[in-house]
Amino acid sequence: CHSECLGNCSQPDDPTKCVACRNFYLDGRCVETCPPPYYHFQDWRCVNFSFCQDLHHKCKNSRRQGCHQYVIHNNKCIPECPSGYTMNSSNLLCTPCLGPCPKVCHLLEGEKTIDSVTSAQELRGCTVINGSLIINIRGGNNLAAELEANLGLIEEISGYLKIRRSYALVSLSFFRKLRLIRGETLEIGNYSFYALDNQNLRQLWDWSKHNLTITQGKLFFHYNPKLCLSEIHKMEEVSGTKGRQERNDIALKTNGDQASCENELLKFSYIRTSFDKILLRWEPYWPPDFRDLLGFMLFYKEAPYQNVTEFDGQDACGSNSWTVVDIDPPLRSNDPKSQNHPGWLMRGLKPWTQYAIFVKTLVTFSDERRTYGAKSDIIYVQTDATNPSVPLDPISVSNSSSQIILKWKPPSDPNGNITHYLVFWERQAEDSELFELDYCLKGLKLPSRTWSPPFESEDSQKHNQSEYEDSAGECCSCPKTDSQILKELEESSFRKTFEDYLHNVVFVPRKT
């Protein structure tokens, strides 16, 4: 048989008469490798580009789960590009990614509803959504962080984005990388972005840091009482949809009607710091009717980097990364020049730590249904340095008659930039024990000054392991946590139920 035959053949030295091919099969003959313009397919066939392209389009058009959109890589027609490569849609070739590779997620039936953290986790790592997304989240724990972890990498949506009755959302900033909504599939009414009845939605994105392009379709905003109209108009300008909307697409009466839409800028007039305090004062603000001013709200939190936005980490279910302080308005003076500047002394802060701070007014709604208010920009203030805590785990070892090696770990709280350490030492008198000992005694162990690591005695271990207080009263049991108490109650309830079950099964009433 021919060298490319495997198993047997019907005619000697003829690659077209093989029972099976050793390498690849091409047009009725066995070959060692697939010549151009053919590609290896499933490690035994040679196919042309049209064959591989037909497989790709067949799966793409069917949208069946589990099928493969075949691509070409290293002269092979394979189910998908290997790690580190992405497909070129024009020629199906796998090309190296520039940075992290995109991950295209194809949605069944063309859309997916995100109504819980669990459903959001199914899209973790996706960068391109081939379909439409509907966000409908009523509640949950730590929602802002969970949504950002699972949806934060999405850069492109081919269909539309719909935010509907998501009472738990305060902001859409968890879509931190969303840059493009194509609108290839539109919501009824030709809408590519749809926001309806979101009672706590206050911000779409921080438009000073976020760009969003909507290729096709219109915007729809109705019944978002805490979303200011200025935020919607800003989205029109940034996304390129200005002029597409009709009169009733953006409701003037049901958007922002319960919001404090600040239209003035508060400026800080005085800032002073110490290692654990920050004193702030800002310019006074009074609405047209000074009785509408209820006070100020001061927001602050630790910020290692200057990239904080107002609604980071917030949701309507209680999660809030900001510390909020309510401040009463100052006494009002008739003389504008003698107006008191409101302020606040922030206490209990960490030394040498940068804080993000902003302040906003708290006002009631005027009778004319106009909203007044003022808010400052987010500023960054760093507390002063102070003395560091003591170095940890000092170790001293003498390696000769004239040297001592000293080692330690950095302090747990540096409280500033540590530039150097101060080492103090003092000579001590020799131990009298060394002169009084009889060095001729056998088995004498000389006193040693070398360091030995501390260890816990058996008594201390027994005390720590004991669940009861000892007789001397030195140790006591740790208080039980809520989960331990709940577990004990469940076990007790189970024992009672099981005992009742045994009584009912074992003891049967005697027939009379």
Rank of each mutant, 00 (worst) to 15 (best):
residue 352 W to L: 14
residue 383 T to N: 00
residue 350 K to F: 06
residue 227 L to C: 12
residue 190 N to A: 14
residue 175 F to S: 00
residue 304 P to D: 13
residue 130 N to K: 06
residue 313 G to R: 13
residue 139 G to W: 06
residue 146 E to S: 04
residue 285 Y to L: 13
residue 249 D to W: 11
residue 201 L to I: 08
residue 236 E to N: 15
residue 398 S to Y: 11
residue 260 S to L: 11
residue 401 S to V: 10
residue 108 L to A: 13
residue 391 P to E: 03
residue 264 E to G: 06
residue 123 L to E: 01
residue 120 A to V: 12
residue 153 L to Y: 04
residue 163 I to H: 01
residue 297 M to T: 02
residue 146 E to A: 13
residue 107 L to H: 11
residue 363 V to S: 05
residue 234 K to W: 07
residue 157 I to Y: 00
residue 269 S to C: 15
residue 145 A to T: 09
residue 269 S to A: 09
residue 257 D to M: 13
residue 155 E to S: 13
residue 180 L to T: 10
residue 345 L to G: 05
residue 113 T to L: 11
residue 132 S to K: 02
residue 219 L to F: 08
residue 315 D to S: 11
residue 319 S to V: 09
residue 389 S to I: 02
residue 350 K to D: 03
residue 265 L to V: 14
residue 161 L to T: 02
residue 200 N to V: 10
residue 287 P to Q: 04
residue 308 V to K: 06
residue 263 N to F: 03
residue 278 I to A: 02
residue 367 D to S: 08
residue 186 L to D: 05
residue 348 G to F: 06
residue 227 L to W: 00
residue 285 Y to T: 04
residue 253 K to G: 13
residue 117 V to Y: 02
residue 297 M to I: 04
residue 226 K to G: 11
residue 360 K to P: 00
residue 251 A to R: 06
residue 190 N to R: 10
residue 351 P to R: 05
residue 407 K to T: 15
residue 404 I to Y: 01
residue 127 T to P: 04
residue 401 S to P: 03
residue 338 S to H: 08
residue 318 G to A: 03
residue 267 K to A: 09
residue 317 C to K: 01
residue 116 S to P: 01
residue 322 W to N: 01
residue 236 E to M: 07
residue 341 H to I: 08
residue 257 D to L: 07
residue 320 N to C: 05
residue 251 A to E: 09
residue 405 I to L: 15
residue 381 V to C: 00
residue 290 F to L: 06
residue 118 T to L: 04
residue 212 L to V: 13
residue 312 D to L: 05
residue 282 W to M: 05
residue 363 V to F: 06
residue 368 E to N: 04
residue 347 R to A: 10
residue 174 F to Q: 01
residue 237 E to G: 08
residue 104 V to T: 04
residue 211 N to H: 10
residue 154 I to Y: 01
residue 321 S to A: 11
residue 409 K to S: 11
residue 191 Y to D: 01
residue 126 C to V: 02
residue 144 A to S: 15
residue 385 A to L: 01
residue 268 F to Q: 00
residue 215 T to H: 07
residue 154 I to F: 01
residue 251 A to Y: 10
residue 260 S to T: 12
residue 361 T to R: 04
residue 347 R to K: 14
residue 194 Y to H: 12
residue 174 F to W: 06
residue 160 Y to T: 07
residue 390 V to R: 14
residue 260 S to G: 10
residue 121 Q to W: 02
residue 113 T to C: 15
residue 203 Q to D: 15
residue 140 G to H: 13
residue 238 V to Y: 12
residue 138 R to H: 15
residue 270 Y to S: 08
residue 365 F to V: 15
residue 129 I to W: 05
residue 315 D to Y: 09
residue 234 K to S: 11
residue 315 D to Q: 15
residue 348 G to L: 05
residue 313 G to N: 14
residue 185 T to N: 09
residue 149 A to S: 04
residue 265 L to G: 07
residue 336 P to L: 07
residue 402 S to H: 12
residue 372 Y to R: 07
residue 126 C to T: 01
residue 255 N to Q: 07
residue 214 I to L: 09
residue 324 V to P: 03
residue 302 E to L: 08
residue 406 L to T: 12
residue 156 E to I: 09
residue 187 E to W: 15
residue 249 D to T: 14
residue 193 F to T: 02
residue 329 P to E: 08
residue 239 S to Q: 04
residue 286 W to E: 05
residue 330 P to N: 08
residue 202 R to G: 02
residue 154 I to Q: 00
residue 203 Q to R: 09
residue 324 V to I: 04
residue 143 L to V: 09
residue 243 G to S: 05
residue 304 P to F: 12
residue 229 L to R: 11
residue 369 R to N: 14
residue 282 W to I: 04
residue 220 F to L: 10
residue 249 D to R: 06
residue 219 L to C: 15
residue 392 L to D: 04
residue 237 E to A: 08
residue 349 L to A: 04
residue 187 E to H: 09
residue 177 K to M: 04
residue 207 W to G: 03
residue 119 S to M: 11
residue 263 N to P: 11
residue 204 L to N: 03
residue 312 D to I: 14
residue 271 I to Y: 06
residue 306 Q to H: 12
residue 303 A to P: 01
residue 353 T to M: 01
residue 356 A to V: 00
residue 173 S to Y: 08
residue 157 I to G: 00
residue 371 T to C: 01
